[in-house]
Design a binder for these strands. Structure first.
Length: 575
DNA sequence: GCCGTTTTCGGCCCGACTGTTTTCAGTCG
């Protein structure tokens, strides 16, 4: 699947075309096409072969030809031509806050500035402020930004770090300041795997008091801004938190606006225009009369636009708007649908709690079961267990199950997919377990064909049912290993394999796009497991459900929404 | 460059902020 590659190429084309001063709407079209392909779940090369590219909305004749050219020759002639006019180093300059395509172009044309170093030199020599439209202030800001860009590097925080922090702040604001309504918006509300900053929206009759308290919270490291309607702080973790106070009559519109995504909002405003309405963060207005027709409630905005309400997690303009127009938004899976955690560890391997402690904690979360899936022997660093140890474990589990009945501990195992695709134990021994999970823990640097081949061999091993953390990525830490997910899904379909959404917030693997692909294009089933190594980590289930919701999944696609009896039948292959 | 329940031509989201400006361009989200 070469979608990512093609979409990156189109983004690059858009960036360079912008620097070259091409028609802004052409650039918009390139960016739009890139984004669509990025989120596409079918391989772009298949569509190209079947000559079906232009059937995708947003891809016309021109871009289709460019994609075809790229897939065949590895280059796009238009892009190569632009590169001759625009030095690629200008793209780096464009990333400096305050410098966009227009200013970069002017700097290049008038002062022949091509690199950040040259830019710094020019700023220090005060030659930038001599240009029309450039002033001393801008020159100063450019210098400041150049110094900042080196340590900033667009940091995004993990959902699992930002979410608890946001909840804590909301709790404090409710408790200690006169807020009426309060909602967390932005990518956090959409449960995106990483978060740029935290946006909190409130209504209040005494906004100064809310702001005073907000900037004085103990977790505040520094204050960026403090005003009547907006304040902004940085916490000790380095996360920026923005707080906005809005009028109650605009609250719904503001929530909608600040939840995004940007692309989703753009589509909504386009729909509004067609209905002779204007949508902004203050409300929905009739264009002719200027009269406000909505804004207090978010649901009402969707309703007036002729749309079914769209859950925040779906708001990425990946087809959810079309679905809402047909009133076909599915009933997404909820945390309360989860009946058990499918992937936890105990102190038999590298977990820190006993099986019984894990079981009791799971019970307190309202679960009916857990699958204890300790590491098998090949993973020495995690105290992987021999078959003999698993037999001892089985005895203990039987004892615990008597105690915690009707709650049930299933005995699973997390097998290692070894470099040749075999696993820790022989095939005949796998039936010993209630369920066998398998994952890659070593040999992650192999070539794509090799990794894909070994996973396929494992999926074809009788007894192995679940493929855990299928792409191996650690967010902000390690890239996915090279694996042909399409081939693996295809093979999974033949073997009725289950794929994991690993709910550990450093992994969230499968991610939203892959999960959606697995379920909607291959009919695969998903298991959500926290991979918890201690009782508390079982709370991360919430993030896994977030990924599932972003993938549009209903509870029917997720096997650990089943009750015990149904799951037992399913694991026996009866369902 | 894309698109069409008024359109195959003429549109293409919206507002805030900043800095440079006496009415606006550029950038950003």
């Amino acid at each position: 699947m070469r979608n990512k590659e093609v979409s990156d190429k189109l983004y690059e084309l858009a960036e360079i075309a912008e620097m070259a001063g091409e028609n802004p709407f052409k650039i918009k079209a390139y960016n739009e096409a890139a984004r669509i392909i990025e989120n596409l779940t079918i391989p772009i090369e298949d569509l190209t072969k079947k000559d079906k590219l232009t059937e995708i909305k947003g891809i016309g004749k021109g871009i289709a030809e460019k994609i075809q050219e790229y897939l065949e020759k590895g280059t796009i002639s238009k892009l190569e031509e632009l590169k001759k006019i625009v030095p690629e180093t200008l793209l780096e300059m464009g990333k400096i806050p305050g410098l966009g395509a227009k200013r970069v172009k002017t700097l290049y044309e008038k002062l022949n500035i091509k690199t950040i170093d040259e830019l710094k030199g020019a700023a220090l020599a005060h030659s930038i402020s001599t240009l029309d439209g450039f002033g001393e202030k801008l020159e100063e800001n450019i210098l400041k930004s150049i110094n900042e860009i080196r340590d900033k590097r667009n940091v995004r925080f993990l959902l699992g770090i930002a979410y608890p922090l946001a909840s804590e702040i909301v709790g404090k604001l409710k408790e200690n300041s006169p807020v009426d309504k309060i909602t967390v918006c932005g990518s956090l509300r959409r449960m995106k795997e990483t978060i740029g900053d935290i946006d909190i929206l409130v209504t209040s009759k005494k906004s100064e008091k809310v702001m005073d308290y907000f900037v004085s919270m103990p977790l505040v490291k520094s204050i960026n801004a403090k005003g009547d309607t907006k304040s902004s702080i940085i916490t000790f973790e380095g996360i920026q938190v923005d707080l906005r106070v809005v009028e109650p009559s605009s609250y719904g519109a503001a929530i909608q606006y600040f939840t995004g995504s940007k692309e989703h909002n753009v589509r909504l405003r386009e729909i509004a225009i067609k209905k002779n309405l204007k949508l902004n963060e203050y409300g929905l207005f009739d264009i002719d009369s200027g009269r406000k027709v909505g804004g207090e409630k978010e649901e009402r905005i969707y309703e007036i636009l002729g749309l079914q309400f769209i859950p925040p997690e779906m708001r990425e303009d990946r087809g959810e708007i079309e679905l809402a127009q047909r009133y076909e938004i599915p009933e997404l899976i909820k945390i309360s649908d989860i009946k058990g955690d499918f992937h936890v560890h105990s102190n038999y391997s590298d977990g820190s709690n006993t099986i019984e402690e894990m079981a009791l904690y799971a019970k307190s979360l309202g679960y009916e079961y857990i699958v204890v899936s300790d590491h098998a022997k090949a993973l020495g660093v995690a105290h992987g267990l021999s078959l003999e140890r698993f037999k001892e474990q089985k005895k203990e589990i039987e004892q615990i199950n008597k105690k915690v009945h009707p709650f049930k501990v299933f005995q699973g195992v997390e097998l290692n997919i070894l470099s040749d695709g075999s696993v820790d134990f022989e095939d005949k021994d796998l039936s010993f377990f209630d369920v066998c999970l398998a994952g890659i823990h070593t040999g992650m640097n192999q070539e794509e064909s090799q990794i894909t081949k070994r996973v396929i061999r494992t999926l074809n091993t009788k007894g192995v049912r679940v493929f855990v953390h299928p792409t191996g990525r650690i967010i902000n830490g390690r890239d996915e290993y090279k694996i042909d997910v399409e081939k693996v899904f295809e093979e999974g379909k033949k073997n009725k394999s289950v794929f994991e959404i690993n709910a550990s917030f450093e992994r969230l693997d499968l991610n939203d796009v892959n999960s959606k692909n697995a379920v909607f294009n291959y009919g695969l089933k998903i298991e959500i497991g926290t991979d918890a190594h201690s009782t508390n980590s079982m709370e991360n289930m919430f993030y896994g459900v977030g990924v599932a919701r972003r993938a549009w999944l209903t509870k029917e696609s997720v096997i650990n929404t089943m009750r015990i009896k149904a799951l037992e039948s399913y694991l026996r292959g009866e369902l």
